[in-house]
Design a protein around this nucleic acid. Structure first.
Lengths: 264, 264
DNA sequence: TTCCGTAATTAACGCATGTAATTGGCGAAG
DNA sequence: CTTCGCCAATTACATGCGTTAATTACGGAA
């Protein structure tokens, strides 16, 4: 769309603050939602985030047409996966939150068929293929990463259902429900959360114009379903919002019905 | 939507006609588009299709909520992946053509988050997990199957872009372009092809009402881009149709830029 | 503080698309 | 042969949503 910069400064910043350990827990928290991990698994996961770097908002981490080299892991901030049409309109196809791998497996293909960009300033790690392979050698870790990838695919399917079959207000409500739940999993939300998204981002997510997005946003506010001030979203009545949007969390495969440990 | 039957008759029919070998080539053709396979790879692929069975049109092969047990491979006919909203509207999220695995990897998760149904009468194989694991032991075969799965995901992303950002006529044209190309890969189309899809199926694919689907279908006919009679679709000017719909085949990862053999 | 640029909000208008209802064709079932 | 039901096609009408454009609010830089 507008003002996407290229990704300079690939040199690690050596940043490993107290923030870093809290964030590392985001990944562990998410994966443990699928499979129980042992100490060695967690040590390995920590070992891959030795050289995080910070990236400003609105920067492409990878662009359509590129040859994929690194797997990107988000430690902090919001990023997204997107594609654009020839006419220039953008469709966001995934939000990448702390603990999310952007492209776990695309290094099999020779070129990216979509782009990855930061939305807010982010802390990310570029992980070389060998490190990923090392993770995959541990059976439980491998299963957990599989689950994460399959859930990503399930989310994409739900988004297609959302955009294809629901009205704009429901679509928006559905996206907000999902974001809240996913942020809860990694400990970044309770009843409210920080959302660094612009209305343009949300419009490009649910496939409407920004004007109409604003209309339905007002509608949700008037219905006292949400509050949205600055970067802070508060969901006033999650049950009502889920019902309104037709949200069924089963596709996130949270909790007990996550991994089938028999797969080990 | 309407009239979905359940999947009885799981007993193999022992069907292995001349059709069978032509169909087996569909899978091989597709996979060889990604990676060159040797004789033993192909023998293994053949060995898994010993007990195909026939399934009538409009039957669920697997339903949302089920525990996944078999991987389904389509040998002949059209099937689809779909989800429905609480209100009952259906979104088709993938067409499953001869040579396509319906759910290569979902046996990791404990329950299906979507359904699979036949569209036309189909010949399918139910493949148990051990057989899949045997295939994955062969490096080139494993890579080829990986590619197929990644391309499936790429197709899903393109569909989201399609439904979210394009107008109905473009969306329809885009879907038709993709179907033609994918059918060509497995040797089932040249300039025209057999499409056993109803207009309701297409409407549920691009997220419009059937009335509007019919409108834009007429539009494509009037523009002399396609012909559509009975089950036969003919694409009169593929270049014009691709341009009209904004179709860029890169997401199918056909040909040279398919697999990165360095991944072996 | 003041200024500036970006994002949010609102209004007016037109078009794309949805809904409801009707007709004819055609194949499957009786 | 007749009937039933599905599917394609079409009309009339209602509305959700896009476009354009103008206005306001807001956060950062000087």
């Amino acid at each position: 769309m507008s003002g996407i910069k290229t990704d300079f400064n690939r040199s690690g910043t050596g940043l490993r603050s107290a923030r870093g350990t809290a964030i590392d827990n985001a990944l562990v928290k998410k994966l443990e939602g699928y499979v129980a991990l042992d100490a060695e698994d967690k040590r390995l996961l920590n070992s891959i985030i030795q050289e995080p770097r910070t990236v400003p908002a609105r920067v492409d981490l990878a662009a359509e047409g590129d040859k994929p080299v690194f797997v990107h892991l988000i430690l902090d901030g919001f990023a997204c996966r997107y594609k654009s049409t020839a006419e220039g309109s953008r469709q966001i196809m995934a939000y990448l939150l702390p603990g999310d791998f952007c492209d776990m497996h695309v290094f099999v293909l020779k070129q990216m068929d979509h782009s990855i960009a930061t939305i807010s300033p982010c802390t990310v790690v570029d992980i070389p293929r060998e490190q990923i392979l090392k993770l995959l050698e541990r059976p439980r870790l491998s299963l957990a990463l599989w689950c994460a990838a399959l859930v990503d695919a399930a989310v994409l399917r739900e988004w297609l259902l959302n955009v294809g079959q629901r009205h704009a207000a429901q679509r928006l409500a559905h996206v907000l429900c999902e974001l809240l739940l996913r942020l809860r999993i990694v400990g970044l939300a309770d009843k409210s959360c920080e959302l660094p998204l612009s209305q343009t981002d949300l419009a490009d997510t649910i496939g409407t114009s920004t004007v109409h997005l604003n209309r339905v946003l007002q509608e949700l506010r008037r219905a006292k379903l949400i509050t949205w001030k600055g970067d802070t979203l508060a969901i006033l009545d999650i049950d009502k919002l889920m019902k309104f949007s037709g949200f069924n969390p089963n596709y996130l495969h949270i909790g007990m019905d996550g991994a089938d440990e028999a797969a080990l």
